[in-house]
Design a protein around this nucleic acid. Structure first.
Length: 415
RNA sequence: GGAGAGUUGCCGGAGCGGUUGAACGGGGCGGUCUCGAAAACCGUUGUGGGUUUACGCCUACCCAGGGUUCGAAUCCCUGACUCUCCGCCA
């Protein structure tokens, strides 16, 4: 959510951002509602002051033996008016707020403008591995090694679900353990494990709602959502708190299953592990001082890429263009690993700076050195998602006979 | 699922329907004292909104939403959450 005062003073900037992100928030409505609301608030305050003043006089007049019946009658009228106004005030606040929740975050100034074709290559590591034979894709390799069983997964849950079997299951678990341990040991994150079912407010807090309700799994009986990423639970972990600046940054790493309905994306990348309704991911979240968030964004990219390097995978880093940015993000880097089997890059990590956008929605504040309470900045990044990493790992480390070698960093977990 | 208890400021803990933004205690911060520290003493210590060049002033907020009243932290209703016990269960 953006600061209303900011919107008021930077209408054009906000309009541009809405357009760049292909969103449809109504700024004119917001400006109008805001104006109406402040007018009502002023009127309400004025009448309330009057009411408070007289209400304090009444007992004194009574004590002095004066007749207050006329006064009481007058006040009764005022009380009714106040009730009417506060009703209107509530209504306009609701309308303003729900409109405000539709306004996306503003892209950072150095983000390329345009759709995904404008995504900017930042750097790459390694190069596509050359094989002296035709590399197999992960499905074939998984089949040969008995790592996956999609048919049976479908029996249980339908399409879009995976089953890892035997060494495949252990490999996936090893990936998760390796990543978490690595981030804790080398990058100073605290490991946490949080609920994967969350309240509606939490989903609004991080910005999935109201926009993406269609893509979320909802448990209607309890109005709880299955998280599409651990980001939701982690970012809302400190909701409503005012954190002393000395305690910043706070940085957490957590593994969680992620649930996505992927409504409307059927037929896209549906093969194997590429796009699933449920998958596992290690996620990093940081709560930081606003002045440092962009440095930390770079730092988090390095945190994530180190993992992939340890796994011996070729990758590249892209800076997403405005049209490809998520609703809540100001700037996002994607890390894409090379899949020799399909000869293309697969997104395994997305690292974003949300600036104060989520902080404002979820009420995440800190007390700065000047003793003022301010919104902090939040960032998150996958560190990283397991299915596509699993794909690239099998395909990159395959041998001619279909057997797989494993990178050294996983040995201790696999043995 | 059944039965009860609770939700007040940074924390503990009061609070007859009318100067209660909230007693009292603790903590924090500032000061006096001290070579320094401790102790003692004094002062201060919430978050939004509106208005003002500024000091300030007004307003809202004692879990949330309604209601009663001229006036509600205080009375009534509904809901959320927490806790205890019973049942059930991984």
């Amino acid at each position: 959510m953006l600061d209303l005062r900011f919107i008021r003073q930077n209408v054009d900037t906000v309009r541009k951002a809405i357009k760049a992100k292909n969103e449809k928030a109504d700024i004119d409505k917001i400006i109008q509602f805001d104006e109406d609301k402040r007018k009502m608030q002023f009127e309400f305050d004025r009448m309330r002051a009057e009411q408070n003043r007289v209400s304090q006089e009444i007992p004194q007049l009574k004590k002095a033996g004066r007749d207050v019946s006329q006064l009481l009658a007058d006040m009764s009228t005022i009380a009714r008016k106040i009730k009417d106004i506060s009703q209107d005030l509530l209504e306009i606040s609701d309308r303003l707020n729900s409109e405000l929740l539709k306004v996306p975050n503003i892209p950072a100034p150095d983000v390329p403008v345009g759709n995904s074709s404008e995504n900017r290559l930042i750097r790459e590591w390694g190069k596509p591995k050359h094989f002296p034979f035709t590399p197999r894709d992960h499905l074939e390799l998984a089949e040969m090694n008995g790592f996956l069983d999609f048919k049976r997964a479908a029996k249980i849950s339908g399409s879009g679900f995976s089953a890892y079997t035997d060494l495949g299951a252990k490999l996936e678990r090893s990936l998760i353990n390796f990543m978490i341990d690595f981030h804790v040991k080398n990058h100073g994150y605290r490991e946490i494990s949080l609920p994967v079912m969350v309240k509606r407010e939490a989903m609004i807090g991080t910005g999935q709602l109201p926009k993406l309700e269609e893509d979320m799994y909802l448990i209607e009986a309890d109005d709880l959502f299955l998280v599409p990423t651990a980001e939701v639970s982690m970012t809302n972990f400190h909701t409503g708190e005012i954190i002393p600046w000395q305690n910043l940054p706070l940085q957490y790493v957590s593994y969680s299953p992620c649930f996505r309905r992927e409504a409307g994306s059927y037929g896209k990348e549906t093969k194997g592990l590429q796009r699933l309704h449920q998958f596992n991911k290690v996620e990093m979240v940081r709560f930081v001082h606003p002045e440092k968030s962009y440095d930390i964004l770079e730092e988090m990219v390095r945190d994530a890429e180190e993992i992939i390097r340890e796994l011996g995978l070729h990758y590249r880093i892209m800076c997403l263009a405005t049209g490809d940015l998520s609703f809540a993000s100001a700037k996002t880097y994607d890390i894409e690993v090379w899949s020799p089997g399909s000869a293309k890059y697969l997104e395994v990590s997305s690292i974003s700076n949300f600036e104060s956008f989520q902080a404002r929605r979820a009420s995440l504040r800190f007390r700065d050195t000047d003793d003022k309470v301010k919104f902090l900045h939040t960032l998150n990044g996958s560190g990283v998602a397991t299915p596509r990493t699993f794909i690239a790992l099998l395909e990159t480390w395959q041998n001619k006979d279909g057997s797989i070698d494993f990178p050294p960093c996983l040995q201790q977990y696999l043995n």
